[in-house]
Design a protein around this nucleic acid. Structure first.
Lengths: 222, 222
DNA sequence: GAATAAAACGAACGGTCGTGCTATTAAATG
DNA sequence: CATTTAATAGCACGACCGTTCGTTTTATTC
């Protein structure tokens, strides 16, 4: 999920390499505004989808002019891409980073999964009051070629890889690919049950399925 | 392009690929056109999402005027809702109906799952060359209130129910809710792996996870 | 085939979209 | 402070959006 944000003129410092966003009080006003825009755009995207991140309404929410906002990005498309990047940073911070505290590998997997369910369920944990912008983008742009799709695909690939490695060390006997797919799927399905259907028992069922998966994962060389 | 049904003259019938849905020779021209619009709109939706079903381009594809097209629906929103309804019909025809031929319940579940994966993988099995419009709508509209969301939620609810019942008779010892969620998730995850990441081994991994799930599902009263 | 109803069209509307420009204001620098 | 540079605003553009309306073409009915 680490991605270097370029596109600055002189030797500026807005960087996001090690998950640590360096944006001190010494940052220029432009850089601060830029992040403010990105966060608000992520909130908007979370409610209505990346495709609905349009300049006018976004500028209104920020209390600034459309053109003043636009001057920060070379196109709307690049704004959308950067929203995804920023959302991924948030995701890493909230869901992934905290699990490092747990040293026991199987427990670490379980903690990750619960964190992820929290992220999915809880509006505002990430950004807006809607769902995860990146997940929405995955399905919104899965067949629409372009930079947004590419960025979404990149994140999805990295996320899947992340789960796979977690599984590999937590459940050594398991087919890590199949198991990762199953875990990924549980999250996706959970999102629909919670956000689309408002199923109160969603978490109960999802966790049951997860526990069964932990106990009896697809095995290697089956 | 190849999917576009040419203009029909009086007395011709309009039917889907396997000749199930018959719009008889006595159907008025308006009704026939209406279906033609819906099918083309579904194709468009499958490529770019329901939100991208706009009147101008849709009219172009159909070789008719925007206003002539619009006259068939009271609003764009209602057009979108009807696209979902029609797509659901297609889904039932292609994925669900054929499984009734298999009487053995566990086998029936397996056949359904494979049919579903086919539907997810295969562009054009349903409508356009993109992915399933309904699934896309689920994530596109999960936080956008309105008729489109309501329709999508309805379909998702029915689909989940369908899987649950299938599980209940195929795997009586299983927690049908948790198992249904897991199966649903496998399909969703599969879609991303295939359509977004182009993972060649996606089907292999998904099927492995499914078989493990069949063998060791989450159990009742766990 | 004439009469009537249905369907499709063309043009136009008010709106919003993304994106250039130029001017103005605020910040950074010496 | 004065000067330079970055940030924002204002305005206008062309394109496209959904929608309406009056007209014309095509189906259907007598």
């Amino acid at each position: 999920m680490g991605m270097i944000v370029k596109a600055l003129k002189k030797g500026q410092t807005l960087q996001t390499e090690d998950g640590r966003e360096i944006l001190g009080p010494d940052a220029s006003k432009g850089e601060r505004t830029r992040v403010r825009i990105l966060d608000e755009a992520a909130a908007l995207a979370s409610e209505n989808g990346i495709g609905a991140v349009t300049l006018g309404p976004l500028a209104d929410r920020l209390g600034m002019s459309k053109s003043g906002l636009f001057a920060h990005f070379k196109s709307k498309e690049s704004l959308q891409v950067e929203v995804l990047v920023r959302s991924a940073e948030r995701f890493t911070e909230v869901v992934i980073a905290p699990i490092r505290a747990e040293k026991d590998k199987p427990k670490r997997l379980a903690i990750f999964f619960r964190n992820w369910l929290d992220w999915i369920e809880h509006p505002g944990l990430g950004s807006g009051k809607g769902g995860c912008p990146i997940l929405a983008a995955h399905f919104e742009y899965d067949d629409v070629p372009g930079p947004v799709r590419d960025q979404a695909a990149k994140h999805n690939g990295e996320f899947y890889e992340f789960i796979r490695r977690l599984v590999a060390v937590a459940l050594p006997q398991a087919d890590e690919y199949a198991t990762a797919a199953a875990i990924d799927g549980l999250g996706l399905s959970h999102l629909l049950r919670v956000r689309l259907m408002g199923d109160e028992k969603a978490r109960l069922h999802t966790l049951r399925a997860f526990e069964a998966l932990q106990k009896n994962p697809p095995l290697k060389g089956a």
